[in-house]
Simulated assay, not measured.
Amino acid sequence: MPHPAWNKRLNLEVESFIIKQYRDGLSAGEILKAIPFKTKKTVYDALERHGIPRRAGCADYKKSFNEAAFAAIDTPEKAYWLGLLITDGYVIEANRTGSPVVGLQMIDREAAEGFHNFLGLQHPVLRMEPRGEQHHLMYRAVCRSQRMAHDLARFGVIPRKSHSTFLPLLTNDLMSHLIRGIFDGDGTASRRSDRQLLIGFCGSERLVAEVRMWLICQLGVSDNRIHENGSIRYVQWSHRGDVQRIAQYLYKDAKQYLKRKFALLQECL
């Protein structure tokens, strides 16, 4: 919502805010949500007065990058980013004149920047300011690609995917990297009140059930039951042996991972 101290007069403070947000990668439409004005012309006029060149709009997202990154999941890096997209990625259907939007949005800037670099995107990672007290600062890496949207659909990364995600079956040597990506997106790592480590996964009913069964069959962890929280399902392990087996499986030969979760589980490695 607009800054409460700003009225509908375009002053230097508001213009400085517009310039900073635009340089951070936000669009004119996104900037308007935080200032007391209604038209994009206000944003563009402020940029022009300060000599800030305008971007080319959605066409920016079509600059050269690796659109075939997910045509075949044949490396640990591809498997990891696929796992993150299954949980925290999104696809927006194409409009009449453009291609589908594929994006990754997370509170962890390192993840958004890592995905940005993996694809070779040329426009900046977007900084998404919280819309209210219940929201968090987010970072978004986004592109437009019919090819990538088509490739990702095979793995359940589709528009409105929240309740239809599943665990793709890759070659055995890539499954730990895929599940680590899922863990970095919708996994949990924390300490109970008795300081015992806890590790788990949440998400759609099918995804959680399939990750749980994979870990039971491959690692021999305890057959813990799945819990419900509204439409979300989750499963957790707190027995030290289970946590250790899962952590060692996830991080063996790992090069891509969230530092904050790795740091918490490092004592198990």
Rank of each mutant, 00 (worst) to 15 (best):
A28G: 14
R55Y: 11
G89P: 04
D88L: 12
G98I: 08
K41G: 07
E129A: 12
L84C: 15
Y90H: 15
I31T: 03
V43T: 07
V102L: 01
L32T: 08
V101L: 06
K78V: 00
Y22W: 08
F65L: 05
G89K: 04
A94P: 02
C58F: 13
G83L: 05
H116T: 05
K41E: 11
G51Q: 05
I52H: 02
G89V: 02
K20N: 09
W81K: 07
A112F: 01
T75A: 03
A72D: 11
E48S: 13
E77A: 09
A34R: 13
F65E: 00
I107F: 10
A68M: 07
T75H: 08
W81N: 05
A34V: 09
S27L: 06
N95L: 08
E110N: 11
K41V: 11
N7C: 02
G98D: 10
A34M: 13
P53H: 06
K20W: 06
A68Y: 10
L85T: 10
R54N: 12
V102Y: 03
L121R: 06
T42E: 02
Q122P: 00
Y90S: 14
M106R: 15
T75W: 08
K40A: 11
R55A: 09
F65D: 00
P76I: 03
T97V: 13
E110C: 08
E48Q: 15
D24R: 14
G98T: 13
G89Q: 05
K78N: 00
